[in-house]
């Protein structure tokens, strides 16, 4: 199992588990890591996460399948999300989606023939002041007209946006530095003492009044 992640990710995977009081909590971050390596959630990736989180592959898959960002089938290198929810709808989101689908040659939920793009009809992406909202690999691209989108597609095809739009799966390029640092036991003991002291103080105060 532990052989699944490539070396740099394996270390991050193991660190992730230690950030939580219970290993299972690391499920979602670990699944993002699987997608960073594979682009989607492979069966081997799911089993690796099950082993790290002390759960079953069925549980991990059950969890993963609940969330829109996790893909049990491969998606494009660039996963394009177009919001059609109400604010974007009022600003031409549905029309933008049609344009994206016809430009990339794949319907929402599908993948382009060359495997470079996949399209998703998104729910509100919380960028409604710049509607209609388009994301590529969960980065806001702010192409608000068909023409702007077409330029973006050219840039993506020619690799000019690698610096700000990494391939699908690379969720956060900023890594947490270091694990937990609060000395848990000490803190607990200290807190208990402080709490008792305060309680005694309060009791004393009550008695005197």
């Amino acid at each position: 199992m532990s052989g699944f992640f490539r070396a740099d990710l394996r270390q991050r995977a193991e660190e992730l588990v230690t950030l939580y009081p219970r290993p299972r909590s690391a499920t979602i971050p670990l699944l993002h890591l699987v997608q960073e390596q594979e682009g989607y959630l492979s069966e081997a990736g799911i089993e690796a996460v099950a082993a790290l989180t002390e759960t079953t592959p069925a549980e991990v898959r059950g969890t993963a399948s609940f969330y829109d960002m996790f893909h049990l089938e491969p998606v494009g290198r660039y996963h394009v999300g177009v919001c059609t929810n109400v604010a974007c709808l009022l600003a031409g989101g549905a029309e933008m989606l049609e344009h994206v689908e016809s430009t990339l040659g794949c319907a929402a939920g599908g993948r382009s023939a060359d495997g470079l793009f996949s399209v998703e009809e998104s729910e509100c992406l919380a960028d409604c002041n710049l509607a209609p909202c388009v994301q590529v690999n969960y980065r806001y691209v702010r192409t608000r007209t068909p023409e702007e989108f077409d330029v973006l597609v050219e840039d993506l095809r020619s690799g000019r946006r690698e610096h700000d739009i990494p391939p699908h799966g690379t969720h956060s390029r900023v890594k947490r530095q270091g694990g937990l640092r609060a000395p848990k036991d000490e803190v607990a003991a200290e807190r208990a003492r402080a709490r008792d002291a305060r309680a005694q103080r309060d009791a004393a105060r009550e008695e005197t009044t």
Binding site: E47, P57, A58, G62
Partner: peptide, 27 residues
Amino acid sequence: AAEVAGDASITLTGRGDQTEIAPAPEH
């Protein structure tokens, strides 16, 4: 499976009206 047998080998998958029950494919 999870609560009585202690072996969550089938779970709910999907969301909303796409919810199904399923084991992991290879298990």
